[in-house]
Design a protein around this nucleic acid. Structure first.
Lengths: 192, 192
DNA sequence: CAACTAATAGTACGATCGTTCGTACAAGTT
DNA sequence: AACTTGTACGAACGATCGTACTATTAGTTG
């Protein structure tokens, strides 16, 4: 199968743009992310960036999708390589903490930042973020359901995610790595 | 003691501005809060709003302070009227859930929104937000320490706050009142 | 090589941003 | 009554925002 070198180059540029966009948005938010700044940082023209997406909203949506792909790659996929059960659930939580702790995105968890930003606003971007949020919650719930001795998987998932998110939030806001220690302790006491 | 009618009037305007500012910021963030929009919504002049604060950063700081006063009034003070112990800790958590659930701020908890927004950025606004965050955490920890049978109050406080914040976040993002039910169930199982 | 196409650059637009300035007016002081 | 002080207004500033247009350049295809 033949590849068009121009399209190929365009896709690479697009990947670069979205990588940087997700990094910026994790710190400044998806609204704080501006096309002009993105172009300056990547040393390309503003219209070049714009042409890839056609509107700011499309850029935001593409950025959310790109961040989700990173998240799946870093957190979900490794855990799914383990057999269902306690070990997989633990890997999911631990993978999440590592993903946050290592600053895969410089502002901590991308989705924590944009959820808080778009949570109370209508629009397609919010809907997409909410959709990924539901998927994540459902995944944790389903994974918890496969652990023997878990009476209410959705409740357990709620409490686990709560701990993960607070660890991220506290670590980012207070530069306090101790938050991850607290989170791990909480996970130990929650998992059966 | 005499009051200057002009100053009095100014302070009332200022209160109106900050009330609206906190409401807007809980939805759009403290950066999304613009002086022009604030002026339009309050039917006053842009320069009139600006003159009260001298800079956008000062407006943001004043907004954070104003929101903190509301928070203390709604959540902290009622709980502190109860004697130390389990009941006070419970009142603190329940008061927080009510404060979020009733949409004291239209975007849910003001501090959840702005913590995520400013968590990863340097500056005076972030420092102020972090300061209030620490105060809140310390208060919950101290309140938990007064409950008999609590071995690690800071850990308990961490887990309680985690549950509260996720309830808020989920309720706002998914219009899901069930999040508060989950949070209350988690609180029951966490409190001794 | 010419014709075509896709990615990028360049320029310009209207709107809005935070900010500055001079002014009008009401309230307090002498 | 004359003067001072504090609030609020209106107009204008330079910068930046998202977006719309028209080149320019590089790769594909006949």
């Amino acid at each position: 199968m033949k590849v068009d070198g121009r399209v190929e180059r365009g896709e690479q540029t697009r990947r670069q743009i979205l990588g940087r966009a997700a990094a910026i948005a994790s710190v400044e938010g998806l609204e704080g992310l501006s096309i002009g700044r993105l172009a300056t940082e990547l040393a390309v023209s503003k219209s070049g960036v714009f042409a890839h997406f056609g509107s700011k909203e499309e850029l935001q949506l593409a950025t959310v999708r790109a961040a989700a792909a990173v998240f799946v790659d870093r957190v979900v996929k490794p855990a799914l390589e383990l057999p269902p059960g306690r070990a997989r659930l633990e890997a999911l939580c631990e993978g999440w903490l590592t993903y946050s702790e290592e600053r895969t995105f410089p502002g901590g968890c991308f989705f924590h930042a944009v959820q808080a930003e778009f949570g109370a606003r209508p629009g397609r971007v919010r809907d997409k973020i909410a959709e990924y949020g539901t998927k994540w919650h459902d995944l944790v719930t389903a994974t918890a359901a496969e652990v023997p001795g878990v009476a209410d998987p959705a409740q357990l998932a709620f409490e686990l995610i709560a701990v993960l998110e607070l660890a991220n939030s506290r670590s980012v806001l207070h530069d306090d790595p101790d938050a991850y220690r607290r989170a791990r302790q909480a996970l130990r006491s929650h998992l059966p």
